[in-house]
Simulated scan of single mutants.
Amino acid sequence: MNMHKKRIARRGAAFVCAFGVALSAMPVHAAEVKSLEDKTSNLQSQLEGINQDLVTLSNKIAETEAEIEESNNEVYRLEASLQISRNNEEKQYETMKTRIKYMYENGSETMITMLFTADSMGDFLNKAEFIQNITDYDKEMLENMMEIRQGIETQEEDLKSQQQELTDLQSQLNTEQQNLQAKAAATSTDLATVNAQLQAAREAQAKQEEEAQKKAQEEAAKQASASTGNNTSGSSSNNNSSSKPSNSGSNNNSGSSSGSSSSNGKYNIPSGGLTPSKGRIWFNGHTETYYSQKVLPGTGLNIPGRHIASDGTIRDKDGYIVLASDDYPKGTVVETSLGAGKVYDSGSGKGNIDLYTDW
């Protein structure tokens, strides 16, 4: 039994050493993947920021366009008011000219006659005041209309100046929008490129890990075979000396035949595959993990002939290991590190297979 344990220890150490040597070049791929993941994250953040800036800028452009539209409407209104004011001013001016012309053509006799035909002093004063008021009214009305016209013209100039500022702002915002759109397109292209590189790096890393594990298993098998040959030679020389050593040697050989397995409590688990201590390994293009019925009873699963195999795996009536996988439909037979299994459940995650065990 001690010899059997020593063989297992030697084989385990050989496998660890071989696997460690095979993995020595893997940090390069891991560092490349990590670097590309960081670049992807940074580019994604940049793209999200640019898109948010574009949304903000689009809102500002829409607001500016609404202000320009409102300003245009106000300009149209002021132009209409200005035209009315000019027309009124011209009418008032023509009326005043007509009265002045009348007074000039009829001379002062009409005014004098109107004054001297007054019935009383009060009537005289009223008529004189009336004549003066006509002149003052014409003058005041003309001045008021000129002030109104000038005020409208000032408003129109200010509004047109504001309108020009809004137009310049709109042009500036449109230029910024075009620049951001070009930047977003360039960032999207960079992101797609880095994503492609990241995918290639991940595939290369997975392939290298698979090849390294396979190489480590082959190396460990060679070392185990060499160790078995040495033990067989030693056992033969013991057989020549006495019968009891021969029986002991026979037991050792029997032990070496199961030396590729490890004892885990009451179960005999083959080495080189998934074990309770190696709860996650890479095998045949996917990662493997296990879920224990001691934690997850799986009472909802319909597993005909459900039983516990000698290696501690939960199997069906046909001897298939019960599996969970998101990559294969239920009922699919998949090769695992511990043998053929059949998919009965999901929820394992992409690229991973769960083996149902009693560990």
Rank of each mutant, 00 (worst) to 15 (best):
L191V: 05
Q172W: 11
E165G: 06
A186M: 04
Q181S: 08
E176I: 01
D168K: 12
S171L: 01
D168G: 08
A182Q: 11
K183G: 11
Q172A: 08
N179Y: 04
Q163S: 13
N179W: 01
A182P: 06
A186K: 11
A192C: 06
Q178I: 02
A182L: 11
N179T: 06
Q178P: 02
Q170A: 09
K183Q: 15
A185P: 11
S171G: 14
N179E: 09
N179M: 06
L166W: 15
Q164T: 14
N179K: 05
D190H: 12
Q178R: 09
L191R: 10
T167Q: 15
S188A: 10
Q163R: 15
T175W: 05
A182H: 10
D168S: 14
A184G: 05
L173A: 04
N174G: 07
T167F: 13
L166Y: 15
A192S: 12
S171I: 07
A192L: 08
L173P: 07
A184K: 10
S188D: 08
L191E: 09
Q178W: 03
D190F: 08
K183A: 14
L166T: 00
L180S: 00
Q177P: 03
S171E: 10
N179F: 04
L191F: 08
A186H: 06
A185H: 11
Q163C: 09
Q172I: 05
D190P: 10
L191M: 02
L173D: 13
Q164L: 13
T187H: 01
Q177C: 01
E176R: 09
D190S: 11
Q163W: 14
A186C: 10
A186R: 12
E176G: 02
Q170K: 15
T189H: 10
L180A: 00
Q172F: 11
Q163F: 08
N174C: 00
E165N: 13
A186I: 01
L166K: 15
A185R: 14
L169P: 04
A184E: 13
S171T: 15
L169M: 11
Q163I: 01
A192W: 00
L180I: 00
D168Y: 14
T167I: 14
L191I: 02
Q164F: 14
A182G: 04
D168M: 09
T167W: 15
T167K: 15
A192R: 13
N174K: 04
L173G: 02
T175I: 07
S171C: 07
S188G: 07
Q177A: 03
T167N: 12
Q164G: 07
L166C: 06
T175L: 01
Q170C: 08
A185G: 06
D190T: 15
